[in-house]
Amino acid sequence: MTRIDAKFATLTAEGKKAFVAYVMAGDPDYATSLELIKGLPGAGVDIIEMGLPFTDPMADGETIQLAGQRALEAGQTLQKTLDMAAEFRKTDDTTPIVMMGYYNPIFNRGVDRFLVDAKAAGIDGLIVVDLPPEEDDELCIPAQQAGLNFIRLATPTTDDKRLPKVLQNTSGFVYYVSITGITGSAEASAADVAPEVARIKSQTDLPLIVGFGIKTPEAAQSIASVADGCVVGSAIVAELAKGCSVAEVLAFVRSLSDGAHRA
């Protein structure tokens, strides 16, 4: 059982929905980012999604793209992202960390070496958006064998024919992308999301977490009420980009987690 599995077991026992927060590792710099990540559990975050900055983030909107650029310009690397997770683990051995990003940096490091290092650093799961199920032998299956969850994204265009393929080697949870398009674009609607969540949950026992387009505590509550929880990323990253202090960003995160936990 991974930390992700354990977290969902605890939340289910408590009758609570999950609140997942995404931040870009190294944005705007290593020290600030580490301080923010260390503060997330205290702000009510159940699972941390740590973005791995990459030069060509094709699934991300402007907010996340700019965060990645700031992180790269400040010297963030895959190794520093693993170091950040390891530093976090010195004081928190229970909050799950999911590394989210693209395959190129992992491929460049070498899959076997990366998985050993990620496990040692305390990473619990991976979301690699540019590796489709047809490439499961590349990273997904080795990751699961190494004890890491491999979390797959389902979208509004994942039809009933495609869905079983998406689900077959997924573990930890399923990430439902509530809107078509890139991160940070449209607003998610619970009315639109609810039937899709029901359709996917009829095909899997895994928790289903909804992300993209959630920007307010009210939206977090609304979306979490029709799923097993929600993810907020761009709205949190945008607060940091505005120059808010870590304390101010964490206060905003607390408002979002409170919303999700009211669901």
Rank of each mutant, 00 (worst) to 15 (best):
V23E: 08
I179N: 13
D192P: 01
L153W: 10
T158N: 12
G68W: 01
R3E: 07
A219C: 08
V197Y: 03
A43T: 07
I141K: 10
D136M: 02
L131W: 11
M24L: 11
A191M: 10
I151F: 14
D258R: 15
V111A: 10
T55V: 06
Q168P: 00
N108M: 15
D117T: 03
I179H: 03
F54G: 00
E138P: 03
D228C: 10
M50V: 14
Q221Y: 08
I182P: 00
A25W: 09
A6R: 15
S171I: 09
F114Y: 12
V45T: 12
K165Q: 12
P133G: 06
G61M: 08
F114C: 03
G68S: 11
A191Q: 14
A121Y: 14
V226Q: 01
I182C: 06
P142T: 05
L115A: 08
G243V: 10
K161D: 14
A120W: 14
L72T: 01
A263P: 02
K119V: 14
D92K: 00
S255W: 04
I223D: 01
K242G: 10
R3H: 13
V98I: 14
Y22K: 02
A190K: 04
T63C: 10
E35Y: 11
L82D: 05
A120S: 11
S202E: 12
G61R: 04
S234L: 05
I141F: 06
F114P: 00
L72S: 02
V177G: 07
L40E: 03
G172Y: 13
T94R: 15
L148R: 00
G51V: 04
I97P: 05
F54T: 00
A251C: 07
G51N: 05
D136L: 06
L148Y: 05
G15A: 08
G26H: 10
F173K: 02
D27Q: 05
L139R: 00
I223G: 00
T180M: 12
L40R: 09
Q168N: 09
A59Y: 07
A263I: 08
A188F: 06
G51T: 06
T81Y: 13
P133I: 08
P133T: 05
G68M: 03
L167Y: 05
E35N: 14
G233D: 12
G233C: 11
K201R: 13
S202N: 14
R199I: 13
S202C: 02
N169F: 15
A227H: 04
E218Y: 11
E218F: 09
A59N: 02
I141P: 01
T158P: 06
F88Q: 04
A74L: 13
G122E: 11
L131V: 15
D137F: 15
K80D: 08
F8R: 05
G122R: 04
A227S: 14
G51Y: 08
I127H: 02
G26T: 07
P57V: 01
I182E: 15
L153Y: 13
A224Y: 06
L206G: 04
G75D: 05
V177C: 09
K201Y: 10
T77S: 15
D160V: 04
G211L: 08
A25R: 02
M58P: 00
F54R: 00
K165E: 08
A146S: 10
R109I: 04
L208V: 13
S225G: 07
P28H: 11
Y30R: 08
V174R: 05
Q144A: 12
Y176G: 01
Q144T: 11
V129W: 02
Q65C: 01
